[in-house]
């Protein structure tokens, strides 16, 4: 959960990027890290295997500035995608404040998207969190592949598969080109900070 420390005048928020393996979570963070490296004073920590797969998680702390004198510290995490690392995914979700679900637009990934979202819901439950309440944004990633003629799901299909009940904000984007990567992040931080508004005023 997020923390507000009145003494230190500091707010801490944990955002987790969740989604099927190879969907583009790490690439989202990489993009943010590279683009704002002058402003992000800390370093991104990435724990990877040889195959470039996230083994544990990626971790990128970002201090975005102050609201009413409070330092707003955001911690961005990704979870590993491989099926067998669910224990790690669960642990990374510990204390999560906001979620970005990165889905893969490729047709062949339709099942994995649905399964992963379903699992996220279950994993949240083990932390007593409700997917219908926690701040959540969906990102439909890899739209750039359309140009390459790779069969993609339509936005309507994605919405139907993933967002029919949730009805949360969703972005079509590309972590590779950066399209809507920043917008996604801004949206989830904004949604999460709303719960702190009273405390900060």
């Amino acid at each position: 959960m997020g923390f507000i420390n009145v003494k230190k005048k500091e707010v801490q928020i944990k955002i987790v990027y969740y989604g099927p393996g190879r969907g583009g979570k790490t690439t989202n963070l990489d993009y943010i890290n590279k683009k704002y490296k002058q402003r992000i004073k800390t370093e991104m920590v990435s724990i990877k295997t040889h195959g470039d797969r996230t083994l544990f998680f990626d971790f990128l702390p970002v201090d975005i500035g102050k609201i009413h004198g409070f330092d707003i510290k955001i911690q961005l995490y990704t979870v590993p995608g491989q099926v067998k690392y669910n224990a790690t995914r669960k642990l990374v979700l510990k204390g999560v404040d906001g979620l970005v679900f990165v889905a893969d637009l490729q047709k062949e990934r339709q099942e994995s998207n649905i399964k992963s979202l379903e699992q996220m819901k279950e994993n949240l439950l083990t932390h007593n969190k409700d997917i219908s309440k926690i701040p959540l944004v969906l990102q439909y990633n890899k739209i750039d592949l359309k140009k390459e003629g790779i069969p993609l799901l339509s936005v309507e299909e994605m919405e139907q598969d993933l967002n029919q009940e949730l009805k949360v904000p969703s972005f079509v984007g590309s972590a590779i080109t950066g399209e809507n990567v920043v917008e996604t992040l801004k949206k989830i931080i904004s949604m999460t900070l709303i719960s702190f508004r009273k405390e900060l005023q």
Partner: peptide
């Protein structure tokens, strides 16, 4: 000095 806030969707 920490106060927990559990963010909800609004």
């Amino acid at each position: 000095g920490d106060k927990e806030v559990v963010p909800d969707r609004h």
